[in-house]
Design a protein around this nucleic acid. Structure first.
Lengths: 118, 118
DNA sequence: CGCATTATTCAACTAGCTTTGAAATATGGA
DNA sequence: TCCATATTTCAAAGCTAGTTGAATAATGCG
């Protein structure tokens, strides 16, 4: 993950509405949430939601799949851990004993990993 | 750490120049780096650097202390782990076995903790 | 005190993002 | 095919953030 991708991810999250969306999807887990339900639960207009979902999706932070008339969105957990890894790279000059494992653990976390077929 | 503080932190980092600054300070570790050296190493103009340091500082991501004519800046590691914790809160509905420990470990990481007297 | 160094502040200009409402696309069922 | 549901796209208006250059503080030294 390069600098520009990280900036895109951080920019996408640096917005109250999109942060709410992303956290909702993080809470929801791998099965995801339909756009309509997101709009209802966050009380936002569908077009505004769509624009924000597009930003998050373009940054790679979320994915989507169609199911009938609904489009189901899901957090992309590995993208977020990549961002964390980038921020912590060479923490304290690489000498510290804690920062390295922290990044490694973050990258290994699999609870929200993609189910096959997204 | 509330939503607005997290958005401020993410906004501060969502900028190539500031991301470079923050990562340089993360690499530098607790002893920090003078503003002038940051400017030289990143090849940015002092006034632009100052503006960006102000944004990072206002977001709580970095701290500073004066030493002679120089002002030494330092990454605030705990602020970043707070942001991570906020993003991961209630990951997968709180049921997953991995996400909880991840956040806990991130918050416990102390390699870049503040030395006394900042 | 006077000067050089270090860093910050100010103001004008530019560019990009956000918001809002209306229209358009896509799917599923009668 | 026709309609209702679900979501996206488009375009205009307003706002916020970034960039640049010159000027302003603050410190240390002779």
């Amino acid at each position: 993950m390069d600098r520009q991708a990280v900036v895109a991810s951080l920019s996408a999250l640096a917005h109250e509405g999109r942060l709410d969306i992303f956290r909702l999807l993080v809470k929801a887990g791998p099965q995801g949430t339909p756009a309509g339900e997101i709009a209802r639960r966050l009380a936002v207009m569908p077009n505004a939601l769509s624009a924000n979902l597009k930003v998050l999706s373009h940054a790679g932070l979320i994915g989507s799949r169609r199911q009938g008339r609904s489009i189901i969105y899901r957090a992309n957990y590995s993208a977020m851990t990549d961002v964390l890894g980038f921020l912590m790279e060479d923490c304290c000059g690489g000498d510290a004993a804690i920062c390295g494992p922290l990044v490694e653990i973050a990258n290994r976390a699999a609870c929200c990993a993609e189910p096959p077929g997204l």
